[in-house]
Nucleic acid binder design. Structure first.
Lengths: 199, 199
DNA sequence: TACTTTTGCTCACAGTGTTATTTTTTATTA
DNA sequence: TAATAAAAAATAACACTGTGAGCAAAAGTA
């Protein structure tokens, strides 16, 4: 009675095909272009068949999210175990993280729900420049007043903005409204930033 | 011949109504729920009328993006001018930024294309914990090896992750593939972080 | 071969952004 | 004021989307 096993196998096979074809669509046309109908066409089945394997479109995307985090964990681990010293480990991890984000940009995008909507338009918005200038002048002022006069203000601006956005994004995504620890994190990060900025 | 002026005025009026009603929909039901048809119903006109005022749905969203950055600039400025010292300015700016992000979460979300797709599901993914643990152990190791033994490793973990994600997100959104400065920013931020972690 | 189960398909519903066509309203001229 | 030209708005349609109900065909079982 290998008949059940065969069915199981076929089931898993089409499941994998769905995932593979979905990924191909995403890689070629982006997340917006991923649709059940397109998947169905790619696997050469009708649309309801897709629902036999995945409860919804979101379930498919969730699968990729898991894949992404799994892959990230792997990359970080590989980077980490090549160093003994903790600071070197952290730097290696940060580089591995960075590389993952851009080598697997499509994965990273769903993992953190990023850049789907208005990716091009953010560039070239006048109002953004105001924010930039505002931050920049304070940073330049801080550099002048400190002991690290060689610091690159534009570099520091990017760092400043990144830290802020990173905190906000992570906090919003984790969605556990624990305002206390969040603000603590903010001040902690700021302390480190300002210290590095002025000494 | 005030007839043209009146038309101009009416044009602007409905344009504002579109923006107002759109915003109400977004506030009440989120960005996903914003549709041209819903807007049309809200302003009590047919759908093509909306296209007389905005070229596309994206154009409407872009309007809110501009609004958002304008408002952010205002808030940051107000925070800044209340302090003379640069480090205090930066902290005030960071707090103002933080408050803006959460007091105007809907604005912030489109400004940085955040959280639209899979906001709830990110919580509770097993693979994510692996990444967490990996980073955490290195951070704990660094704290042990350093001089700042009282550092909160979980707090530092959040900071670490936030810095990384912030850098990536900002880099991806700005989309100017200037890999050199980006990596510089990364190392700069890491240097500051590690310094604060161990001293 | 006859029956049952499973599998996959067609069709439909309720949406979406966007646009061509037609109708209605408004303004201008005779 | 009535006829005509122009502008405005509505209807309807196109090409999509996710999702689900109901039916036909194939596969397995007796």
């Amino acid at each position: 009675m290998g008949i059940l096993e065969r069915k199981q196998r076929q089931m898993e096979e089409t499941r994998n095909t769905i995932l593979e074809q979905s990924w191909q669509i995403v890689e070629e046309e982006g997340w917006q272009a991923l649709s059940i109908r397109k998947i169905a066409e790619a696997i050469e089945y009708s649309t309801p068949v897709v629902y036999k394997h995945f409860e919804s479109k979101d379930a498919i995307i969730e699968e990729f999210t898991k894949q992404g985090f799994g892959l990230l964990a792997e990359k970080l681990k590989n980077a980490k175990i090549q160093h003994d010293q903790p600071d070197q480990q952290l730097i290696a991890i940060s580089h591995a993280y960075w590389n993952f984000a851009f080598n697997h940009a499509k994965h990273y995008q769903i993992m953190f729900g990023l850049g789907i909507p208005t990716c091009e338009m953010i560039h070239g918005i006048d109002e953004m420049k105001k924010v930039n200038d505002l931050m920049l002048s304070s940073i330049e002022y801080a550099i002048e007043s400190g002991k690290n006069l060689d610091a690159d203000s534009h570099l520091k601006l990017r760092t400043f903005w990144s830290i802020l956005h990173g905190l906000v994004a992570i906090e919003m995504l984790s969605a556990r409204n624990c305002a206390d620890t969040a603000l603590q994190t903010l001040d902690d990060a700021m302390e480190g930033f300002i210290k590095a900025l002025t000494t």
